[in-house]
């Protein structure tokens, strides 16, 4: 079993209203040092088998086809 973590984040320059709202809420809690907050998504995916290269290729295809909208989002794949 190969365990992977996919992180999807908004591209630079894409406005993130939810991140802005969270940033404001952190300020309201008294965290004065927060420069900015960007919200993203994390997917933990388990791939059957031990073929690491094959899994990486599959995970990349999953990101391109479904998990990320590459118009507005970047993704990264980590296999520890």
């Amino acid at each position: 079993m190969i365990k992977a973590r996919i992180t999807v984040t908004l591209k630079n320059g894409v406005l993130d209203p939810q991140g802005k709202a969270i940033e404001g809420a952190l300020g309201a809690l008294g965290f004065d040092g927060v420069g900015s907050v960007r919200q993203g998504k994390v997917f933990d995916v388990e791939i059957q088998g031990t073929d690491r290269a094959g899994a990486e290729a599959d995970l990349k295809a999953m990101c391109e086809k479904l998990l990320a909208n590459t118009v507005i989002e970047n993704y990264s794949i980590a296999i520890p």
Partner: peptide, 17 residues
């Protein structure tokens, strides 16, 4: 239609949330 790639661009959360 945007997610299917039949139109360009994307729709995001309203700025007002």
């Amino acid at each position: 239609l945007l997610e299917a790639g039949l139109l360009p661009g994307a729709l995001m959360r309203n700025t007002s949330l």
